[in-house]
């Protein structure tokens, strides 16, 4: 079947790498995506397809959709990828000492504001 794929991507997830695979992992189509709205065409013998978008920036998470397309020779598929920021964290340890006498501060609160 012939598939006309229209994908929209949230801006912060760009640029990103689009792939279309069968459920068995066979690559059908791939493309680097740089715009928020894209239209591509490809042919596939399989109706069950995985549409994946992986941002180049590791601060953002990839997203995949598993779809079973209707049994039509030609069809249009619209997919929106709402890319979210990665929740990855790492342990940060801190010390706070008196500048003049170099003893540990008994009790305090350090507040961090992201730029």
């Amino acid at each position: 079947m012939k598939v006309r794929l229209i994908i929209s991507v949230s801006k912060k997830g760009l640029p990103a790498f689009l792939t279309v695979r069968t459920f068995q992992g066979k690559l059908i189509f791939s493309k680097m995506v740089r715009c928020g709205l894209n239209e591509v065409c490809f042919c596939s013998a399989n109706r069950k397809l995985i549409f994946s978008l992986m941002p180049i920036n590791a601060d953002y998470l990839g997203l995949s959709y598993y779809l079973k397309l209707p049994a039509c020779p030609c069809q249009t598929v619209r997919v929106h990828f709402d890319i979210k920021e990665s929740e990855r964290t790492a342990l940060q340890s801190f010390t706070l000492y008196d500048k003049n006498y170099n003893f540990p501060i008994i009790s305090a609160l350090l507040r961090f504001f992201k730029y």
């Binding site: 940060q92 609160l109 350090l110 992201k114 730029y115």
Partner: peptide
């Protein structure tokens, strides 16, 4: 907000630059 007790404290933080 990271509590400091006897000079030490820690937190799980996302990467980035903070004031």
């Amino acid at each position: 907000n990271v509590e400091i007790t006897n000079g030490s404290g820690s937190a799980e933080m996302k990467k980035g630059t903070y004031s």
